[in-house]
């Protein structure tokens, strides 16, 4: 089953990381990513710009364009993974491993209903 692993953390903390801290976290995550890739369990993964770069379109009539993210929250959606796991237990295991490499915040594990790979190259 496909799961989305939604990464939530306080962006003011994450975006205040120094380059070295960022590199260290990415290196630790890279180890987990590699293993998941080799096992054929890792789909696309994305890291988002801060919510300050976001624009929201409210689908009212007429649609309304708002600066900023959909919702103002204490922790923000900073990125996500798509992973292929047998069940929730396995998905939680992956989340725990990623969480050890990158502490702080939360992962929301949400099963995917539809997955279209699309046409974009990496």
């Amino acid at each position: 089953m496909l799961y989305a692993l939604l990464c939530y953390n306080a962006e003011d903390v994450v975006f205040a990381w120094s380059q070295e801290e960022d590199d260290a976290v990415m290196a630790r995550l890279g180890v987990v990513h590699d293993r998941l890739l080799k096992a054929g369990k890792l789909g696309p993964s994305l890291r988002l710009m801060p919510t300050t770069a976001a624009t929201t379109l409210r689908k009212t009539d007429p649609p309304l364009v708002i600066d900023g993210p959909f919702a103002e929250t204490k922790e923000q959606l900073l990125g996500f993974y798509v992973i292929d796991c047998a069940d929730l237990d396995e998905a939680l295991g992956v989340a725990r491993e990623l969480g050890q490499a990158n502490p702080g915040g939360s992962y929301e594990i949400r099963p995917l209903r539809l997955f279209l790979p699309g046409a974009l190259p990496a």
């Binding site: 975006f15 801060p50 919510t51 300050t52 600066d67 900023g68």
Partner: peptide, 22 residues
């Protein structure tokens, strides 16, 4: 420079619709 960018982002989070801060 890093600190200024952090403060600018902070301001922008507080004033999401200000083009000046963007």
């Amino acid at each position: 420079c890093d600190e200024a960018i952090r403060l600018a982002r902070l301001l922008q989070r507080l004033f999401q619709t200000e083009p000046e801060i963007m």
